[in-house]
């Protein structure tokens, strides 16, 4: 229990470092530490599926962000914040936190979930051959995302496909610089419509 609070505090410190440090590369590395600490936190909260997924996803996100920031203007000469806007935002977020603290009091307390829906999945169990109900999978999370609630996964697949098409469309070379396209004989199918 203490470990959860310590890791949460470290995450907040890491997040503040990530948004305040001058060098952009350091900011990306600090973001990576936030992700790794959250992965440990998921493991402590008994969610191993989510912990594995977050670990690898965070590695890929850090790689992508480093490819984006490195060799571009890594040291920003004068990165001015907006002082007035920042103070207003700080005050607003403080009020938001206080109000939401009142709302969190209405939730079930930490460590005692109500599980109105999930108790159905757990009661079904893994159901042996020939029995009705259940999916036969030992991992309840897998049976939720791929059997009971597979519509969610279908929607997720759609969003992922849209994001991939969006990245390929934004990054395509065709039709961007006409003169360069005429001289360079590069294959242009990388950025075509997927």
């Amino acid at each position: 229990m203490v470990a959860i609070y310590v890791l949460l505090g470290l995450m907040i410190v890491g997040a503040i470092v990530a948004i305040e440090v001058k060098n952009l590369l350091s900011a990306v590395v600090a973001l990576g530490t936030v992700g790794l600490m959250m992965s440990i936190l998921f493991l402590l909260m008994k969610a191993p599926d989510v912990a594995i997924t977050l670990l690898v996803v965070e590695i890929l996100a850090v790689i992508i962000l480093i490819r984006a920031t490195i060799k571009r203007d890594v040291e920003v000469p004068e990165e001015k914040d907006r002082p007035i806007g920042g103070l207003i935002a700080l005050a607003f977020l403080l009020v938001l936190t206080l109000v939401s603290a009142g709302a969190f009091g209405e939730l079930p307390p930490f460590g005692e979930p109500q599980m109105r829906v999930a108790s159905y999945y757990l009661d079904q169990g893994y159901s042996l051959e020939g029995e009705p109900g259940g999916t036969g999978a030992a991992n309840v999370v897998a049976s939720v995302i791929l059997d009971y609630r597979a519509y969610d996964t279908l929607g997720e697949a759609t969003v992922l496909f849209t994001a991939v098409v969006g990245v390929l469309a934004v990054m395509r070379k065709v039709g961007r610089k006409k003169d360069r396209l005429a001289t360079a004989k590069e294959p242009t199918e990388e950025g075509g419509s997927a």
């Binding site: 191993p48 599926d49 912990a51 594995i52 997924t53 690898v56 996803v57 590695i59 890929l60 036969g136 999978a137 030992a138 991992n139 999370v141 897998a142 049976s143 995302i145 791929l146």
Partner: peptide, 16 residues
């Protein structure tokens, strides 16, 4: 379907 993991984590590791 037996251990932690699944399609999401496996797919991301293969991409990695």
């Amino acid at each position: 379907h037996l251990t932690p993991g699944g399609g999401f984590a496996g797919g991301v590791i293969i991409a990695l």
